[in-house]
Computed example of a mutant assay.
Amino acid sequence: MSLPQPVPPSWKDLGKSSNDLLGKDYYFQGTSLEVKTKTPSNVTFKVSGKQDQKSNAINGDIEAKYADFKNGLVFTQSWTTSNILRSQLELENYMAKGLKLDLSTALLPEKGSKSALLNAIYKQSGVHTRATLDLFKGPTFTADTVVGRDGFLFGAEAAYNVTEGRITRYAAAVGYNAREYALTLHGLSNLSTYSASYYHRVSPDVEAGAKAVYDTKATTQGVSLEVGAKTFLDSAAYIKAKINNSGVLALGYTQTLRPGVKASFGLALDTQRLNDLSATGPTHKVGAHFIFEA
């Protein structure tokens, strides 16, 4: 008798280890600040802001989240400086074990534009399925499924336009997740774009990863390649570095200053234009990110 299989990751989380290693904690697009507080009644407030490096414009949002863990209910409301009102209602394990219902809405009063997404997520041993209905765009029905067994993962996604009566997007993926490494292959955009990602936990203090992307419809042929690594200096600090085949080197440093206070700094250098110190253009970038949490 085989052992119960763990719940596999969702479609959007396939290759997450490599994506997080190569995509997170690189703050070189200006300065940003994030403040989080939580009340004893499980209400969480988050205020975040970011100053654009080119225009110096400050964009921000304020978010309030209420969680009723006993009944599996989470309600989130946010308001941005672009005057976008977002609401999200999540209900998990209420109607059936492993089933989560999610309604996300957005409203832009100035333009009168609105959106609403109704999501259903079902998780059980060896399977992770999601279905999304975009009520105002199309409407469009999107479904994806990931099945897993003994570390092997197989996933597929498809979008169906209800009004036009046709499939507008489809994709597939295969992967393998082990304790210390993961491999994922994607065929995206109607199988016109292919990506392969790799993640390896070399030791408790060192992680490495790579990602290659080939777009058959791109104007410039060739494979885009990116490799990176993360090293923990101690329990409160780590440094990350990555480089792509265009010669752009990115560095990130994150330091926990004290419990609830974290600072991150990022730097991006175009190694093919190191002598170009012009203030205009995206040649070299630097930025910082601060998090205060209570």
Rank of each mutant, 00 (worst) to 15 (best):
H284D: 06
A156F: 12
D276F: 02
Y27W: 05
H200A: 05
E180K: 08
E34F: 09
G287R: 00
A241G: 15
A288K: 01
G175L: 00
A241F: 11
V206R: 02
K240A: 10
E226H: 01
S125V: 02
R273I: 00
N83F: 08
H200Q: 14
A143R: 02
D20Q: 06
L267P: 11
Y199M: 04
T280M: 05
L21N: 02
D52A: 13
P4L: 10
P109E: 01
A229H: 02
L33M: 11
N83Y: 12
R258P: 10
T37A: 12
A279V: 01
T31Y: 13
Y214S: 06
I58G: 04
F69E: 14
H128Q: 11
A294K: 14
P9F: 06
S2F: 11
G281D: 03
A173Q: 01
K137T: 14
K65T: 15
V43D: 06
W11K: 11
K24E: 06
Y122H: 06
D205Y: 04
F45E: 01
V47K: 00
T271I: 00
D25N: 15
T140E: 12
D215V: 02
V47P: 03
V35G: 11
G49I: 14
S17W: 12
Q29T: 06
D13G: 09
S32D: 12
G148V: 01
N161M: 07
F141Q: 00
I239C: 13
S189A: 15
K38N: 07
G98N: 05
S246T: 03
V147Q: 00
L73V: 13
Y253C: 00
I291S: 13
I84M: 11
F154S: 06
T216A: 04
L277N: 14
S48Q: 14
I84G: 00
L103Y: 14
S2C: 08
T220S: 10
P4H: 11
G222I: 11
T254W: 01
D270R: 09
L21C: 04
H200C: 07
Q88M: 15
A120S: 07
L117S: 05
T80A: 06
G138M: 05
S18A: 15
T219R: 01
R149T: 02
L22D: 03
A64P: 09
M1L: 11
T81S: 15
I84F: 14
F232Y: 06
A288F: 15
L85M: 11
L118A: 09
T256V: 15
I243F: 08
V202D: 03
N275E: 13
V43T: 12
L133V: 07
I62G: 13
N245A: 13
E164H: 08
K54W: 13
F290N: 03
D270T: 08
L108I: 02
F45A: 03
D61W: 02
L277Q: 14
I58W: 15
D150Q: 13
A182I: 00
T76W: 14
F45M: 01
V261N: 13
L183D: 00
Q53S: 15
G247I: 06
L267T: 07
G98M: 01
H200D: 12
E90H: 08
G252R: 00
F292S: 04
L183F: 12
G138P: 07
T129H: 03
W11P: 08
T283P: 03
I291M: 10
G15D: 11
